[in-house]
Simulated scan of single mutants.
Amino acid sequence: MTDLPGVFGSVAPYIDDYGYLAVAGMVFLANLCIPVPGDATLIVASIYTVSGDLGLVPVLVVAWTAAVLGECAAFAIGRYGGRPLAIRLGRRFGVTHDLLDRVEAFYARRGTATVVVGRFVPLLRRANGLVAGLTEMSWHRFLVANMVGAALWVGVCTIVGRQAGNNIDTVNTVLERVAPLLGLLLVVVIVLSVARRRRRRRAAEEELR
């Protein structure tokens, strides 16, 4: 199925050659802060379940397990690498202790929902586990959100892939153009929300003076 459009065509040869191993590897890396097309991998694997080249249940099990393990690995890197690693790697991008304090406060309030929903936004998916570990989100809370988010993500992508049919070009357009824009919009909303809360906190502190 190398005649699939766009990113699907680039993923298909790996699944042709390595089957479930390719699905496991790419989904794992996509959840480990690596820019690998995880959505496309799941959709192509799902298309292969329709043609009979792959089994539906094995794809679901392999993909879910790889997604959970990938984000757990990212969480461990964030937890044990800690702030020194984040500051060292992110200094040129404006990462500071103050910024990390605000991110930690955000995850304390909405970390569970962010880990679940972030699975559907490529930018957040790559950073989710790392940031959750960095902000010292509890392991149990993260694991539950991770497992639920992985199940929803794998399930939705599988349904999309099995139903794509003649609409695969439209799916490719959405994946390559619309999804990144939605991800950017979500990031902007989060940044504005954090900035607004910071202004309110400053205003409250000034009133108390």
Rank of each mutant, 00 (worst) to 15 (best):
M1I: 09
T2G: 11
L4K: 11
P5D: 06
G6M: 03
G6R: 05
V7W: 08
V11C: 10
Y14I: 01
D16F: 08
D17H: 12
L21W: 14
A24G: 14
G25P: 13
G25D: 04
G25H: 08
V27N: 08
F28M: 03
L29T: 11
N31S: 15
C33T: 15
C33D: 05
V36K: 11
P37V: 03
G38A: 09
G38Q: 06
D39M: 13
A40P: 08
V44Y: 11
V44S: 07
S46I: 04
S46H: 03
V50Y: 06
D53V: 06
G55C: 11
L56S: 09
P58W: 03
V61I: 15
A63H: 10
A63F: 07
W64H: 14
T65K: 06
A67H: 11
V68N: 12
E71I: 04
A73I: 06
F75Y: 15
I77W: 10
I77Y: 07
I77N: 07
G78V: 10
G78A: 09
R79P: 10
Y80G: 03
G81S: 05
G81F: 04
R83Q: 12
R83C: 02
A86L: 10
R91G: 00
F93V: 07
G94D: 11
H97E: 15
D101R: 11
F106H: 12
F106Y: 14
Y107N: 09
Y107S: 07
Y107Q: 07
A108D: 14
A108Q: 12
R110Y: 11
G111E: 06
T112A: 10
V115S: 09
V115E: 13
G118P: 10
R119D: 10
R119A: 13
P122S: 03
P122E: 01
P122Q: 03
L123R: 01
L124G: 00
L124E: 00
N128C: 03
G133K: 05
L134Y: 03
M137F: 02
W139F: 07
W139E: 04
H140I: 00
F142M: 02
V144M: 03
V144R: 08
A145H: 02
A145L: 02
N146W: 01
M147G: 14
V148H: 04
G149I: 02
G149P: 10
L152T: 09
L152Q: 05
L152R: 05
G155K: 02
V160C: 05
V160E: 01
R162I: 04
Q163K: 12
Q163N: 08
A164G: 05
A164C: 05
A164H: 08
G165N: 07
I168D: 04
T170Q: 11
E176S: 13
R177V: 07
V178C: 05
A179D: 00
L182M: 11
L182W: 02
L182P: 03
G183D: 12
G183T: 12
V187E: 04
V188H: 01
I190K: 02
I190C: 01
V191A: 14
V194I: 15
A195H: 06
A195E: 14
R196H: 09
R198F: 00
R198E: 14
R199L: 04
R201Q: 13
R201L: 07
A203M: 01
E207D: 09
E207M: 05
L208A: 15
R209Y: 00
